[in-house]
Design a protein around this nucleic acid. Structure first.
Length: 501
DNA sequence: AGTGCAGTTGACTTT
DNA sequence: TAAAGTCAACTGCAC
């Protein structure tokens, strides 16, 4: 007996039901639709990911079913993609699989290659829609900004939920409840539990709440607070995780901003425009990764391959657990571990500390930070890591002074004391550099260095000079400059050039 | 009042 | 979204 012929919409990092090209196309086609999300064990155990991401995904999936009052379930699998589709093929013939292109790390790229082969062998069409103005196989950036703007101003991909409700089918499963895996082991319990306090929860609804509250209430103060460890958490857009997992599409964010910016006061407009310019940078970096995904493993500028930065496990443990003895660094890392978010400046500071002051290779830090950033977006992440590590050749080398930054961005030490409570009895000026405490003061404040709080893991004065000399030496070498020309040609379009340098 | 000088500020360059 | 160094201009003050 012939199996029913269906289409599949495969959700990845596009967990929403609006402005969704694959859904729009599948509905237009009119065949029954199976909606699936696959929790891939190999991805879940990859170093870039943490349970917090899968929690966020789970909440997004729940939101897609519940908040929109759809009376069908998304099918959720917990096994690798090939086996999932083989399982589906036992019950159905698949005409087309609709999904978004994934600009991802090697492990997902390889999975896509495997799937491409599998689909071809089964005579299944794989229809992949592009991601937010990012183009496959681009060799240079001529006309890129223009194309991006066209994409952003284009009409939304309309999804008719009524039609979707009629077409959507569920895979008949052995004793599976609505949210259970269609096949494979049950999901870890923690995935289905609420987010820990302080970490953003996932979902389209929450994404829109954030976007609206930012544009209409929190935007004034965006630029002023952008570097403040505490201020940025309120005055920032805070939609990054929702963008990374596709609760919001870039186009939706851009159009919401364009619609509302006109009606605001000029001071708010300034802040909103600063926010909006970053939306384009977001896609710029993803495009960069699409064109050159080797930067997950290799220096963008190969001249920096000569750096000798032997990995030190003790340094790694102290850095990641917030035990370096530099209060700002420790506060940032502890805060990140617990909340999944840091503002841009703190991300730059902790990375600079790792690669310049601890003189460590960027790769282990890149993987660890990816797993802690709830908004981990592969393209942006690796471009930023390399930029902060100073191995792109085309960007200025910024070695942050953790004490100077501490006094500048956290003058009253509020942020530090929130996360490094060991220091709470010290006067503010000593919180920024506790190693200056003299023995009598340590007694007086009941704060023994090396016991209650670690001594600095390195001496800034010594390490930063070495790092500076070596990095600038490479940056100015003939070899680095030769590669720079190639890099600029590939990734930079006209006016963007100055902004990058 | 003008001069010399130490200290400060800001623009600019180098790393 | 850096930090440190250089230099010229400026400031305040003493004489």
């Amino acid at each position: 007996m012939a199996k029913p012929l269906i289409n599949v919409v495969w959700f990845k990092r596009d967990l929403r039901l609006s402005d969704h090209a694959p859904l729009r196309k599948a509905i237009e086609d009119g065949k029954p639709i199976l909606l699936i999300y696959i929790f891939e064990p190999e991805l879940m155990s990859d170093k870039h990911y943490d349970i917090r991401h899968w929690c966020f995904v789970w909440q997004s999936l729940k939101d897609m079913q519940q908040a929109n009052k759809l009376n069908f379930s998304l099918s959720v699998a917990h096994q690798n993609a090939s086996d999932t589709f083989r399982h589906i093929l036992r019950f159905f013939d698949i005409h087309t699989v609709f999904s978004h292109q994934e600009i991802g790390i090697k492990i997902t790229y390889d999975r896509d290659l495997t799937m491409k082969k599998l689909f071809r062998s089964k005579n299944i069409v794989w229809d992949e829609s592009s991601y937010a103005g990012v183009r496959r196989g681009l060799r240079d950036r001529i006309g890129w900004a223009k194309y991006w703007h066209e994409q952003m101003y284009a009409m939304e991909e309309k999804v008719h939920l009524g039609n979707l409700r009629e077409l959507a089918i569920r895979l008949a499963l052995d004793n599976s409840a609505a949210h259970q895996a269609i096949k494979g082991k049950p999901l870890p319990r923690e995935v289905m539990e609420p987010m820990p306090e302080g970490m953003q929860s996932g979902g389209e609804l929450l994404g829109w709440e954030r976007l609206e509250s930012f544009v209409n209430h929190r935007a004034l103060g965006y630029t002023k607070n952008i570097s403040s460890p505490i201020g940025s958490r309120h005055f920032g857009g805070r939609i990054s995780a929702h963008l990374a997992w596709g609760n919001l599409s870039m186009r939706q964010v851009f159009q919401y901003y364009s619609r509302h910016v006109k009606e605001k006061e000029s001071s708010v407009q300034r802040d909103l425009n600063a926010f909006a310019s970053r939306l384009r940078w977001h896609c710029h970096f993803i495009q960069k990764f699409e064109s050159e995904d080797r930067i997950e493993f290799e220096n963008l500028n190969p001249a920096f391959d000569v750096l000798e930065q032997p990995y030190n496990d003790e340094y790694f443990e102290r850095w990641k657990n917030g035990q370096t003895g530099y209060p700002l660094i420790d506060a940032a890392m502890r805060c990140l571990n617990e909340t999944g978010f840091l503002n841009f400046r703190l991300r730059a500071i902790v990375l600079s500390f790792w690669s310049h002051l601890l003189w460590q290779p960027w790769k282990p830090a890149a993987e660890y930070l990816a797993s802690m950033f709830l908004d981990f977006e592969p393209g942006i992440h690796y471009a930023q890591v390399q930029m902060q590590a100073g191995v792109t050749g085309i960007n200025i080398i910024r070695i942050y002074n953790p004490v100077k930054q501490s006094k500048e961005i956290d003058p009253d030490a509020k942020f530090i004391l929130e996360w490094v409570q060991e220091l709470k009895n010290l006067p503010i000026n000593l919180v920024h550099e506790p190693w200056t405490l003299r023995p009598l003061e340590q007694l007086f404040y009941d704060m023994q260095l090396g016991l209650h709080y670690p001594l600095p893991v390195i001496d800034y004065k010594k390490t930063h000079t070495d790092a500076r000399d070596i990095l600038w030496g490479v940056k100015e070498s003939k070899s680095a400059q030769k590669y720079n020309r190639k890099i600029l040609k590939m990734h930079v379009e006209g006016k963007l050039k100055e902004q990058l340098e």
